[in-house]
């Protein structure tokens, strides 16, 4: 077990950021911590990276207690904070050198670890970090977090504010790091990224809603689900939410995913929508994706 979280709670004043959280991350796993802003992801990550002490519960990272054995633990974890935390006024090379040195190593010694990532930004190695693009900053931050050969890599929302292409590239890099046997815990508010993880924990308001592999989560979805399109999506959504059999309706791109409370007779929904004056209607049963499952879980929790 690389990461072991046992009944962790943490409050900031009256706000319970984490409420009795427990889960485990196996060695070599790419584990996603998924939840909206304010769910408690960063708090949990800061506890695991020895920066924050929990109010209750215990955690073990690499079989070390982040509270008591933080000094032993720190050299073995790579941490990439949510906010870009490198020195903007130092160059790419200087930043990397700095982090290598304070971990007591050199770039040369561990170049093989970061070659895949660092080679992409090496042409700009004399550029100040502050002048890099968002995607390049992420690559540099990942290089700096990897340069001391950590066994566990903990990333806090690495893809927030990064363009779609860079996000995709970034996940490919994580996949390659995983192949080296590094345990990776990554948090993200983007549910579509869940399918790229081996297992995910869905977190909301300081509670874990579910921990499973993306495939099992999708399988466990048991409601009838329809994809509905119409000419005016906004009005369609509004009307669907007033449809008696509707459980939930969420917009996905230009269609609406409609979960029903039970089976319905053919044509019933079509009639309803036509009466409401919708045109260019298309209704088809669809298989749930991971986002539908999360929406469902979150709705259940609120209800």
């Amino acid at each position: 077990m690389s990461i072991y979280i046992n009944h962790i709670s943490k409050s900031y004043g009256p706000v319970k950021a984490l409420d009795d959280i427990s889960f485990e991350v196996s060695k070599g796993e790419l584990f996603g911590l998924i939840g909206p802003d304010g769910a408690g992801k960063t708090t949990l990550i800061r506890i695991l990276t020895t920066l924050l002490v929990p109010d209750a519960g215990t955690a073990r990272v690499l079989d070390l207690d982040p509270v008591k054995e933080f000094r032993k633990l720190r050299p073995h974890i790579g941490y990439m904070p949510g906010r870009f935390s490198l020195y903007q006024d130092l160059t790419v090379l200087e930043n990397l050198n700095f982090f290598a040195t304070i971990f007591g190593t050199t770039i040369e010694k561990n170049y093989h670890l970061i070659a895949d990532i660092y080679s992409q930004i090496e042409p700009f190695k004399n550029r100040r970090a502050g002048q890099l693009s968002g995607g390049m900053k992420q690559k540099l931050a990942l290089s700096c977090a990897m340069v001391h050969e950590p066994e566990v890599l903990i990333l806090d929302e690495p893809t927030t504010g990064v363009d779609a292409v860079s996000r995709k590239e970034f996940w490919e890099m994580l996949a390659r790091l995983k192949e080296r046997g590094i345990t990776i815990l990554v948090s993200t508010p983007y549910m579509d990224e869940a399918s790229l993880c081996d297992r995910v924990a869905l977190i909301q308001n300081g509670h874990i809603l579910q921990v499973d592999s993306p495939a099992s989560i999708v399988e466990s979805y048991d409601r009838p689900l329809l994809g509905v399109r119409a000419q005016n999506t906004l009005r369609l959504l509004e009307d669907l939410r007033h449809y008696p059999l509707t459980h939930t309706a969420f917009p996905f791109g230009d269609s609406v995913h409609l979960a029903l409370t039970g089976e319905q007779t053919d044509g019933e929904l079509l009639d309803y929508l036509q009466k409401k004056g919708h045109t260019e209607l298309a209704i088809e049963p669809i298989a749930a994706n991971i986002e539908d499952c999360f929406m469902e879980l979150m709705t259940e929790k609120i209800a």
Binding site: T49, P81, R83, S85, F99, G104
Partner: peptide
């Protein structure tokens, strides 16, 4: 203020 302390604090410094 610029957040670099967050990264530094996780190092063995």
């Amino acid at each position: 203020e610029i957040g670099t302390i967050e990264q530094i604090n996780v190092t063995p410094i």
